[in-house]
Design a protein around this nucleic acid. Structure first.
Length: 136
DNA sequence: GTTCTTACA
DNA sequence: TGTAAGAA
């Protein structure tokens, strides 16, 4: 399974994202309205966020804390998307031999690690890019 | 019990 | 942005 595929896999509920990013559901939904993220939906219309979504949210949060407004955040994110588009074409075949993990197992793994995260509420939350540690 | 949408202080 | 109402 490609790393890219894994990063775009819809896995997180609103509650999980809230803990991961420390953003309120209100803010997360607002950012979605602004087109900053596009989480998938369950049959019951529940949002399902991917690693990419969470990463973007963390990015957005960092920018906002620096005083960048929504408009500014949009521009920066758009530029990154353009960059990704170019890179995607040149993405070389990977020689990955990572053991295949079922979606169910991934869920278990994530749930466990997220529990550890919420176990220490005082510490500062995730930094942008830190999410990548879940892939190792 | 959690999340969704819509609407208003 | 926060919060309330009503539905899923």
């Amino acid at each position: 399974m490609r790393d890219d595929t894994r990063r775009n896999m819809p896995l997180f509920s609103m509650g999980t994202v809230q803990k991961l990013t420390e953003l309120t559901p209100r803010q997360v939904r607002y950012y979605e309205q602004q087109g900053l993220i596009r989480p998938a939906r369950t049959n019951g219309n529940q949002r399902l966020f991917s690693f990419n979504d969470v990463d973007r949210l963390l990015h957005i949060k960092n920018l906002m804390e620096k005083g960048v407004n929504i408009a500014g955040v949009k521009e920066m994110l758009q530029k990154e998307e353009q960059k990704e588009g170019v890179v995607t074409e040149a993405t070389p075949p990977q020689t990955v031999k990572k053991p295949e993990i079922s979606e169910a197992e991934l869920h278990k793994l994530l749930k466990r690690q997220l529990s550890e995260l919420s176990a220490r509420p005082n510490q500062s939350h995730l930094l942008r890019g830190e999410l990548s540690r879940f892939f190792h």
